[in-house]
Design a protein around this nucleic acid. Structure first.
Length: 436
RNA sequence: GGAGGGAUCGCAUAGUGGCCUAGUGCGCACGCUUGGAAAGCGUGUAUCCGCGCAAGUGGAUCGAGGGUUCGAAUCCCUCUCCCUCCGCCA
């Protein structure tokens, strides 16, 4: 959400932002029109209410004939006011719906572009491996090592589902735990959040409206007349519940920045991706992720610092795992409605012969905090909306793609990265075995 | 699933149709007092939206939404959340 005053003053800037992010610039003028109409009607209604309030006070002092006359006069005023209320309500709803669709302009440094093709590489780390044998892809490795079972996942739950088993299951838990421990050592507070959330939480973090078809819904109110159901949504990332943890609260400036690490299952419908990335574990409906969430004070410099910090943490994990990666500046067209700056980290995936997205680091400034009504009290007693940011720290099983593929050996075994061995009971390799 | 009780200002509480412009206590802030401190005394202490340079002022909000009424924290309806007990349950 943006400040309405900002929208009124900077309409042109917002229209440009909408165009740059492949959104609809016409909504800006529509909102400004509704805003103007709403202000006029609201003033009229409020004047009426003030008069009504005053009359009620007067009546309390009156008696007999005069009292009855005053009551009759106020009754007709009341009827008049009632007639305006549906229109007021309609305008308010329209206003809110449009407000929720306003696009936050990206920082000036963000490259303009249409989609992820236009993202700009800003640095690379590590050496892309070369093999003196014919390397397998992670699907083949997973099958030969009996640690990934995609056919049975599909049998049980449909396309884009899978089983991890044996060392595959242990390896995922090892990576997650290793990453979480690292963040905790850096002062992050670990969270296991609810993964089913109310729709207002999806709205608060900016996923709704617009992203409804990407989220699984549970118990949506669609039953026969009179029947009530819970409406809950499975989150696509723990960013949603963790950023919303302080929804509606007023924090103390001294508490900030809050560094939170959420670990959860993540669920994504991946609507509109039929036929895209259908092979293996790249694009799936359910995965686990350790997510970094930062809530900091309302200061662009502070936000920028936090952005670099959480970006650095993710890079550190990849460096620990010795996985080559690159960092890109995400272009305007590939950014979300509320994000003003975003970096993706792409890790080298031998089977794709290229870098594939494994992390996404976003700065929001006030966008989410306004929707969540999340403020803090500054030292001078003034209240400000917080700034929020988030970045993946590790997401599995997608990270197993580069990990298995890069660490495979000629004999078909996979070496377990050094840093993960303590989390794998000291195991050093995963050996080929017959599928059970 | 069943039966009860509750939600009021940061916290705790009062408030059963107009005296509520929501009282009191605690906490917090400022001031007085003091050599300094405590105690005491005084003043102030919610959020959002509008108008105003400002002091100020209009509106909304007593869990949420609707209703009754000239007037609702208070009466009615619906919902949400919390607590207690019973049943079921990993």
């Amino acid at each position: 959400m943006l400040d309405i005053k900002f929208i009124r003053d900077k309409a042109d800037l917002l229209k440009k932002a909408a165009r740059d992010k492949n959104s609809n610039p016409a909504l800006v003028d529509e909102l400004i029109g509704v805003d103007r109409e709403l202000a006029q009607l609201r003033q009229k209604v409020e004047e009426g209410r003030a008069q009504q309030n005053q009359s009620a006070k007067d009546i309390a002092q009156l008696e007999g004939e005069a009292r009855q006359q005053a009551i009759d006069a106020t009754s007709s005023l009341k009827v008049e006011l009632k007639q305006q209320e549906p229109k007021l309500k309609e305008l308010e709803e329209k206003y809110l719906a449009l407000m929720l669709q306003m696009v936050q302009p990206a920082l000036a440094r963000v490259p303009l572009g249409k989609d992820d093709q236009d993202n700009v590489e800003i640095r690379k780390w590590g050496e892309v491996p070369s093999f003196d044998f014919e390397p397998k892809d992670h699907v083949q490795l997973g099958e030969d090592l009996d640690i990934i079972d995609i056919p049975r996942g599909t049998k049980i739950s449909g396309s884009r589902f899978y089983f991890l088993k044996n060392e595959g299951a242990l390896l995922e838990l090892a990576i997650l735990r290793y990453t979480l421990d690292k963040l905790v050592a850096k002062g992050f507070t670990p969270f296991i959040p609810p993964v089913l959330v109310r729709p207002e939480v999806m709205t608060g973090t900016g996923y709704f409206p617009g992203g409804e078809e990407q989220a699984y819904a549970v118990g949506v109110k669609s039953g026969p007349e009179g029947l009530q159901f819970d409406e809950l949504h499975l989150v696509g990332t723990s960013e949603v519940p963790v950023t919303s943890y302080h929804q509606g609260e007023i924090l103390d400036e001294a508490q900030l920045p809050l560094l939170y690490a959420g670990i959860s299952n993540c669920f994504r419908r991946e609507a509109g991706t039929y036929g895209k990335d259908t092979h293996g574990l790249y694009r799936i409906h359910q995965f686990q992720k350790v997510e970094q969430v930062v809530i900091c004070k309302n200061d662009p410099e502070e936000s920028a610092k936090m952005h670099q910090m959480i970006l650095g943490n993710a890079e550190e994990v990849l460096q620990d795992l010795q996985l080559p990666y690159r960092v890109v500046d995400v272009c305007s067209g590939d950014m979300g409605q509320g994000q003003i700056y975003k970096n993706d980290i792409e890790t080298w995936m031998p089977s794709r012969k290229g870098y594939g997205e494994t992390h996404s680091c976003s700065t929001f400034h006030e966008f989410q905090a306004r929707r969540l009504n999340l403020k803090y009290k500054a030292a001078d007693g003034k209240k400000h909306f917080c700034h929020t940011l988030n970045n993946t720290c590790i997401a599995s099983p997608r990270i197993l793609i580069p990990l298995l593929e890069v660490y495979q050996q000629k004999d078909g075994s996979v070496v377990i990265p050094l840093v993960l061995r303590p989390y794998m009971n000291g195991r050093e390799t995963i050996q080929v075995k017959k599928r059970g």
